[in-house]
Simulated scan of single mutants.
Amino acid sequence: MDEFLRDAAFGGSPGADVSRAAAYGTPRQRWLAAVVLGGQGRYAAATALLTELRHTPDPVLASLAASTLASQRRQVGGHAAARRLDGEALARLAGVAPVADDPDCVDAAGALADALTGLAADAIGAGGPSRRLLVVAADTVERLGGTERHRWRSRVRLDWVRAEIDLAAGRPAEALEPAERAVATATAAGAVRHRVKSRMVLAATLANLHDAVSKGRAEALLECDVHHNEALGLHPLVWPCALLLGGLRPDGAHAWHERAKGVLSCVLLRADPTARSLAAASVWVP
């Protein structure tokens, strides 16, 4: 079951049915199932698992659970709520040696990188020193050691946030390198969900460059990924892609916005009450 769950969470089968592992798996298997469920937009099921796992005696697993839930809160615009969870994730690692011994960063080093990178991402939406936090996260990942293969997930997440910080600051040209690097790293790792998220970050970057070639490239990426993400069941990535396409295509903006809202409404039907409340209050969510 472990290999099946790894492939669903970090490999080529993000749309897999993980209900058996969610119900009967070990704590680590249930965390992997929660990662998959969150990627599919099944937030209520994921939240139930992660809430339980945040209180497990294993500090690494508890930290991973808190930062995973934080990521899901950010996806519905809940940056302040995510910041509290990422702070909890960091606190759970106090006194834990940051060992890097897992190929997908499911270890103390990966948990530390997740918490620090998450805090930098939270600061983009909630206000705070996002760039300074990201520098700390990047320095930490570099000092942790391990092979490139061992650190692929941490590096991809760092590059997402690097690009997002530059985009938020109005510097799309500077965002291009980390966005393209994230696509390359996720592709080399065979991580489908991370690759399509990286492509979305790259498309957003290209769309902000405002030249015709970049715009055309962004549209091609987004059109492909809307259909691909729907086929994979990665609904939390469908509606942001549709919103971006609406911004790129004024003539069809209304149709793309309606499509985004339709997909989002389906996601929120499978969300827990806190996620629905965060989405309703967020300026980031249509």
Rank of each mutant, 00 (worst) to 15 (best):
G25D: 09
G11K: 06
L278M: 06
R157F: 09
E88Q: 10
K197E: 14
V141F: 08
A34F: 14
R199I: 00
D86T: 10
V35S: 08
G118P: 00
P236E: 07
R157S: 10
L119D: 05
A182R: 05
R171P: 09
A45F: 00
L243T: 01
Q72R: 15
S198P: 00
T140M: 10
Q72V: 11
A111K: 02
S67P: 00
D102H: 11
H228T: 12
Y43H: 12
K261A: 15
V106G: 00
L269F: 14
H210V: 08
R73L: 11
A34E: 13
A184P: 03
K197Y: 08
A80F: 08
V156H: 02
A186P: 00
N229I: 00
V213E: 13
A207P: 03
R151F: 04
V201S: 01
V192G: 04
R270N: 13
V99F: 10
D17W: 06
S154Y: 05
H257Y: 15
T68N: 12
S130K: 07
A280C: 05
A111F: 03
A204L: 10
R54I: 08
V156S: 02
M200C: 01
G216A: 03
L269N: 14
V35E: 15
V161S: 08
R143E: 10
A45V: 09
L144R: 13
D251F: 15
R92G: 07
T205G: 03
V196R: 06
S63K: 04
S265W: 03
L268Y: 03
A81H: 10
C241P: 11
R249F: 09
P172E: 00
D58F: 05
R270T: 10
A253R: 14
L85Q: 01
A191K: 03
G216M: 02
D58C: 12
V135I: 12
G77H: 05
G247T: 05
A16R: 03
L53S: 04
A46K: 05
L248F: 10
D107M: 02
S13E: 06
T117M: 01
T68F: 12
L206H: 03
A62E: 09
P273R: 00
A279I: 04
A207L: 04
H257T: 15
D58V: 11
A121V: 02
A203D: 07
A189K: 05
E164T: 00
A186D: 07
A120L: 02
F4G: 11
L222N: 06
P103S: 01
E223F: 12
R84A: 15
P250F: 11
L244N: 06
G78W: 08
E230V: 10
V36Q: 08
L90G: 04
S265K: 14
E148T: 10
G125D: 02
D251A: 15
R259S: 10
T187R: 14
V196T: 12
D86Y: 10
L144C: 15
G128V: 07
